[in-house]
């Protein structure tokens, strides 16, 4: 096992290298760069900016150099100093910007994942063991609606209902008086009273998917002979269902659980934008639209690294969950 993990970690190095090149290239793909749009904005506002000033800015940000030199500098700073560069738009180190938002992002994402599992797995087991019952139809109906409705739409509907029915502005994680207040107990209580809505909205999307997958898998597993063997032992039905078929039916779930690691950081961007939650998702979106190259690059790199790492974690979990998986190779 240890040898397998080590080998996989070594494989990650070239993978990440290729990813870093690709992510840098993708960021450079759209025509123009941050400076062009920056200058355009300035001109729009009536401020003229002469060629020498532009030249100086180009110099300052290294934009006049060939792309591979820019990439080389970028990588060197990341690897040697952990420096992800400067955000053009915010005029602050990328590292600080991301770090600022990561706490809240990870908190909301973890909570969402937890809520998703707590709802979806028992629901999936119930509908699979009570196939064609009223609740099976009801839960299936709700989960299809959940699958078919994008989260941001639900968030919009939620905001609208809260505003038109209750007259409450439900956007944001904090009530007005706490937005700029320093962290204290009241602020935390206020946040917790508001956080369940975005968490539930975010959870609904994945809940629906997991219910459908686990239900389908479990329905297959329930008819396997080993379930009958367990039943013939005299085990209680509920105990045997959770110990045997559910365990096997969750394997595909284990194999994708690592990807949630990347979702921890990107969050559900659209929902976060709609609900005005200060997570890293909206920051990434903004960086991409304003061609804030180093900020966006850092995000893409971070997400890719987490995906690669998450895949490894998934594989390890799956190997633990299913002893038939071989670790060679």
């Amino acid at each position: 096992m240890a040898k397998y993990i080590l080998k996989r970690i070594l494989y990650m190095i070239p993978t990440l290298f290729v990813i870093s090149i690709i992510s840098f290239a993708i960021i450079q793909l759209p025509p123009g760069d941050f400076l062009t749009s920056y200058v355009a904005t300035l001109r729009q506002q009536g401020e003229d900016i002469d060629a020498t000033a532009i030249k100086a800015l180009e110099e300052q940000y290294g934009l006049n150099q060939p792309i591979y030199v820019q990439y080389g500098k970028w990588m060197r700073n990341i690897l040697l100093y952990g420096d992800f560069g400067l955000s053009f738009e915010w005029r602050r180190p990328v590292k600080d910007l991301i770090w600022e938002r990561i706490g809240l992002t990870v908190f909301i994402s973890l909570l969402t994942i937890l809520v998703t599992w707590i709802i979806s797995i028992p629901a999936a087991v119930y509908v699979a063991t009570h196939q064609y019952s009223f609740l099976d139809y009801l839960i299936s109906f709700i989960s299809f609606v959940g699958l078919g409705t994008p989260g941001f739409l639900i968030a919009l509907v939620y905001l609208w209902i809260m505003l038109s029915v209750f007259g409450v502005n439900a956007a944001g994680l904090f009530s007005e008086q706490y937005i700029n207040a320093p962290w204290n107990w009241d602020k935390i209580v206020d946040m917790m009273s508001r956080i369940w809505a975005p968490v539930l909205i975010l959870a609904l999307d994945n809940t629906a998917g997991i219910i459908r997958t686990v239900r389908a898998n479990l329905l297959d597993e329930l008819n396997k002979p080993y379930v009958e063997t367990a039943r013939a032992k005299g085990l209680k039905e509920r105990i045997l269902i959770w110990k045997y078929p559910v365990r096997v039916a969750l394997n595909p779930f284990f194999s994708t659980v690592g990807w949630t690691l990347a979702a921890l950081v990107s969050g559900e961007t659209l929902v976060a934008v709609v609900l005005n939650i200060q997570t890293s998702g909206p920051l990434l979106l903004r960086a991409l639209t304003s061609q804030d190259m180093y900020l966006a690059g850092a995000f893409v790199l971070l997400l890719s690294a987490l995906t690669v790492l998450g895949t490894l974690i998934s594989d390890i979990l799956l190997a633990i969950a299913d002893p038939r998986i071989r670790l060679e190779g």
Binding site: Y226, T229, A232, K233, Y244, R247, R324
Partner: peptide
Amino acid sequence: RNIRGGEIAMVFQEPMSSLSPVH
């Protein structure tokens, strides 16, 4: 449940699939 497995036990046809693969 006491009789099942305790007093009457059963051996099934397919030893491949009649045992749990993950235990």
